[in-house]
Simulated assay, not measured.
Amino acid sequence: MEGIVWAALELALTCISALSLISPVWFQTPTFSFGVLTYCSWPQGNSWNQSCGTFRSLGDIPDFAWKVSAAILLIGWLLLAFNAIFLLSWALVPKGLCPRRNRGPMPGVQVVAATATVAGPLVFPISLASPFAKEACGASSVYHSGQCQLGWGYGTAILSAVLASLLPMTQLPSKTKAQGRTILFASNTEKTIVVPEMSK
């Protein structure tokens, strides 16, 4: 049951990350908005009549830092998706086939995915100095958005990064060694059980 919960959390995190990745509202003005992979424009006062475009490849993205951020975020999203699918299959495999099922198969993949989802939003604001961003946001520069405001897409990317960072921390082992003794932490009580170390 615990594995299914972890798989569901990982799938939800993958969906949040994908939503932020395809969002055209990382930075916005009253008539234009852009994200990592998409951008939209509309007439003044008529935001329902939007015209949107997509950067179809990394070569179409207008700035090097923007390309780096997009590549990092795509890698992070792919790792999250791969880990979610793998965790789901791991949770659904019969217990007899996999005796060591308590922590999941690949905690390292989650850590690398979390690192990528944190690094992507940190690198992206460097691209505010690009000609594309300057045309959209006026006097924008590195980590200064000029006339643009932060949109919900960037907020979603930050939320995804925080959740991706917290998820591996909750899977730490519940067994540790201190001063030559094994300490087991009981989850249903507040007592600590100290077991003397056995010589081998």
Rank of each mutant, 00 (worst) to 15 (best):
Y143I: 02
F82Y: 15
I22Q: 03
A113E: 03
V5R: 14
L167W: 01
A116W: 06
P196V: 00
V111P: 10
R103P: 00
G138P: 11
I126W: 04
F64W: 09
A129E: 12
Y143N: 06
S160C: 06
Y143V: 01
L87N: 06
I126A: 03
N46I: 13
P99V: 14
E197Y: 07
L88N: 00
S23I: 11
I61G: 01
W42N: 05
L13Q: 07
C98A: 08
Q28E: 07
S47L: 09
G138T: 00
C98S: 07
D60C: 08
Y39L: 00
E197I: 04
E135Y: 05
V111T: 13
A139C: 00
W6T: 15
W152F: 13
K200M: 10
K134R: 13
F86C: 10
L159R: 04
P99A: 13
G3L: 14
K67S: 09
K67W: 07
P131T: 01
I4M: 13
T176F: 08
S51C: 01
M198N: 12
M1K: 11
R100L: 12
L166V: 05
M1N: 09
L37M: 15
T29Y: 06
A18T: 10
A7I: 07
V195Q: 08
S57K: 00
P62Q: 04
S141Y: 09
L167G: 02
A70F: 03
F124L: 10
L37E: 06
A12E: 04
M1S: 12
I4L: 15
L79Q: 04
G108F: 11
K67H: 05
A12D: 04
S174C: 04
E135T: 06
V111R: 12
Q149D: 14
N46E: 10
W152L: 12
I16M: 15
G153E: 05
A116R: 03
I158E: 12
W66K: 03
F185Y: 09
P94V: 14
P173F: 00
L78P: 10
A136P: 04
F55N: 02
A178L: 11
S199K: 15
G155V: 15
I126Y: 03
S174K: 02
V25L: 09
A7C: 03
Q147S: 14
E135A: 06
T29C: 00
L166G: 07
N83W: 10
L163S: 09
T192S: 12
S23A: 12
E190G: 13
W66S: 05
G35N: 02
G155T: 15
L80G: 07
W152I: 15
Q147Y: 10
E135K: 11
A178H: 14
S130I: 04
A129Q: 11
M106D: 13
L11R: 08
S127E: 10
K177M: 06
S17E: 08
G153R: 01
L58N: 02
V195E: 05
M169G: 08
P121G: 03
P62R: 01
T29H: 06
K67T: 09
L97K: 04
A81Q: 03
